[in-house]
Write a protein that binds this DNA or RNA. Structure first.
Lengths: 215, 215
DNA sequence: GAAGAGTCTAGGGTTTCCCCTAATTTTCAC
DNA sequence: GTGAAAATTAGGGGAAACCCTAGACTCTTC
C-alpha cells in the first residue's frame, strides 16, 4: 500500500484527485495539506511514501523550497510535482531539488496512478509532454530525463570516468590517469550524476550497476 | 599475463622468487627494483599489475611510504607486502596504506603464486598466519581480514547504515533516520569501509552489491 | 558559417566524506 | 559478574565530493 500525501491548496483539485484514487487498492490518501508547514508537520508524524506537490504560480518558490526540504529531511519520501505550466526551467529546478516525477494538471487518471506507482518503486516518472519540453532545452538534460527510468546515453569520457569511479579512484587519481585536470573529471562526474538523476556517488554506483554500465 | 615488479633489496631472495615464477605461464617478472625511487620510476614507464613489496625492518617507513605512494599514484597497481615479521600493527598499517596482500618470507611457491593471482583479480590475499595474528589484535579487524575475499559479518547497525547509504542518504540524513548522532553514522561507515577493505563510498557500494549485501 | 555536442579548464564556495584518537554505555556470553 | 563485543558520542583536521557560473576549443552537422 502506497501512502500518499496531497499538498495542494486548490480544494476542488484535491477532491478530484482523491476521488480518482479512492478506487485504487494499492494507493491510500493519508493526508491533504494546504500549506508547506502542515506538510512538514505531517511528515514528522506519519510515514509517507509519495507526496503529490502542487507548484502553482504564486507558490513557486514555496514549492521549490518545500521540495528541497522534504528531500533533505525525508529522503525516502518521493515527490511528484504537479503544475499547470510546462516551463522547462521550473521542471529542471524541481528535479534538481529532488522531485522524482512531474505531471501537468491536465493529466489522466491512468497517468496519475502510473506516476505514483513508478516513483513509489524508486524510479523517475516524466510523461511525454514533459520530456518534450526538456528535449528542447538544455542539452545535458536530454539523454537523462528523456530516458528517465531508461538507460542514459553516456559520452566516451563519461563512461571512462564511471568505470574508474567504480574502481574506487578519487577525482585526482582519475585526472592523472586520463591526463586531464581535476576540474574536467569533476565535470564528467557531475554530468553522470545528472544523467542518472542522483545526487551522490553511492547512488550513482548502485544505479549504474543495476543498469549494467558497470561489471 | 600478470605483469609483476619485485621491490626488494635482498638479491638472493629476489632471485629465488624469480626462479619460482619463471615456470609460470601466467605471471611475468617485468622488473626488479632495489630502491623506492626506482620502483616509482619503473611504474612511470611500464604498466605493472602487481608489486611484490619488501617491508624489511630498516626500511619499514620506506615500505609504508612507498606503498602509500604507489596506491596514490597508480591505484590500479596491486601490492603484496612481503616481510619476515608478523607484527600485527605493521600488517594493519600496510593494509591501510593500500596493500591488497601480505606474505611472510617463509611462504611457499604455491602460496606466492596464489597470492599474486588473487590480488591480480582485484581481491585481497592474507594467509592463515597473518589472519591469526590479526585475530588476536583489534576486534574491528577480525571479521574483515579474517574473511578477506569472503563476506564480512556486519553488525545490525552496520547493515542499516549500508542499506541507507545505498539509498543515497547522506551521513546527516542517516543520523536523523536512525536517531543517532552524525558521528555514530560516520563510525559505522568507516567500519564498513574497513570490513570490506575499501577506501571510499564508490567501491564500498560496488563491493557490497557484488557480495549481495544490497539489492 | 552557425549551431550543437563533447570536451576541457577555471574560480570559488559549501558540504560530505574519511581518518585519528579516545572515552562511555549497553549487551551478551562464559 | 567479568570480560568481550557492539554501539554510541566527541573533537579536530584534511581531503574529496558537490554545486554554480562561465569561457574556450574541437568536430560534426545542417
Amino acid at each position: 500500500m502506497t501512502r500518499l500525501l496531497i499538498a495542494d491548496d486548490h480544494n476542488v483539485f484535491v477532491e478530484g484527485i482523491e476521488s480518482l484514487i479512492s478506487g485504487s487498492s494499492e494507493i491510500e490518501v493519508v493526508q491533504r495539506c494546504y500549506s508547506a508547514s502542515s506538510v512538514i508537520e505531517t511528515l514528522k508524524q506519519v510515514a509517507i511514501d509519495v507526496v503529490l506537490l502542487d507548484v502553482s504560480f504564486p507558490l513557486i518558490d514555496d514549492g521549490l523550497g518545500l521540495c528541497e526540504q522534504i528531500t533533505r529531511l525525508y529522503p525516502q519520501t518521493k515527490i511528484i510535482a504537479l503544475t499547470m505550466h510546462d516551463d522547462a526551467s521550473l521542471i529542471k529546478r524541481m528535479v534538481k531539488k529532488g522531485a522524482q516525477g512531474y505531471l501537468l494538471k491536465n493529466t489522466t487518471k491512468m497517468e496519475l496512478l502510473q506516476a505514483i506507482r513508478t516513483v513509489a518503486e524508486g524510479k523517475q516518472y516524466f510523461n511525454e509532454t514533459i520530456t518534450h519540453v526538456l528535449l528542447n532545452d538544455e542539452p545535458r538534460f536530454r539523454k537523462s530525463i528523456a530516458g528517465a527510468g531508461l538507460k542514459p546515453n553516456l559520452t566516451p569520457r563519461e563512461s571512462e570516468v564511471l568505470t574508474l569511479m567504480a574502481q574506487g579512484l578519487t577525482t585526482h587519481q582519475m585526472a592523472n590517469q586520463l591526463f586531464v585536470s581535476d576540474k574536467a573529471v569533476e565535470f564528467h562526474r557531475s554530468s553522470l550524476l545528472m544523467k542518472f538523476g542522483v545526487h551522490n556517488t553511492a547512488l550513482l554506483i548502485k544505479t549504474a550497476m543495476e543498469m549494467q554500465y558497470i561489471d
